[in-house]
């Protein structure tokens, strides 16, 4: 794709999403990074998913010191672009509104981010454990940077909860 074509996508998004985003950047030819506040993220992602006809690939999370940064990766295959929507959810208020309430594709990944990082997704219809066992102790989040493997010992597993 030529630079002029990609510049077109950037300009288009800038025009449509002017008020809602913090900033938008295109560091490489096929990647666009949009930074958004946590309150505005569901709007932007749903706009990209429904009206802009992007496909949802996955979501990822990483523990920055101030909070958890969640990135939603969406793709536009006809224009050969991957559009990433970044939000930083601070530790002081670890909540974000759930997109899985309306769109089914987001449900499982939000369950996984919830159990691994502790981010609360408001309004999610089915917040159960996805990959951790049911007997894993509550309140411990394995993918945070301050989690040590010695935090969870064998006695903490509560097998009654797994129902076997």
């Amino acid at each position: 794709m030529s630079k002029r074509e990609n510049g077109k996508v950037m300009k288009d998004l800038k025009k449509k999403l002017k008020k809602k985003i913090i900033d938008i950047a295109q560091p490489r030819e096929k990647r666009i990074y949009i930074r958004v506040e946590p309150e505005k993220t569901p709007e932007v992602v749903e706009y990209l998913f429904s009206k802009y006809k992007c496909k949802f690939c996955t979501a990822s999370g990483i523990d920055m010191r101030e909070g958890i940064e969640i990135i939603y990766h969406l793709a536009r295959e006809d224009k050969n672009m991957v559009i990433n929507v970044k939000t930083l959810v601070p530790y002081s208020k670890l909540e974000i509104e759930s997109i899985g309430r309306r769109i089914k594709a987001f449900r499982w990944i939000e369950r996984e981010i919830n159990e691994m990082f502790g981010v609360i997704f408001k309004g999610h219809p089915d917040m159960r454990r996805l990959i951790l066992p049911d007997s894993f102790p509550k309140g411990k989040y394995p993918l945070r940077k301050d989690f040590k493997n010695s935090d969870v010992t064998d006695e903490d597993y509560d097998y009654e909860r797994s129902g076997i």
């Binding site: 066992p133 007997s135 894993f136 597993y157 097998y159 797994s162 076997i164």
Partner: peptide
């Protein structure tokens, strides 16, 4: 052995 698999393995 995983915590998922432990009760089932013993069974």
């Amino acid at each position: 052995v995983n915590a998922h698999a432990k009760p089932r393995f013993l069974e």
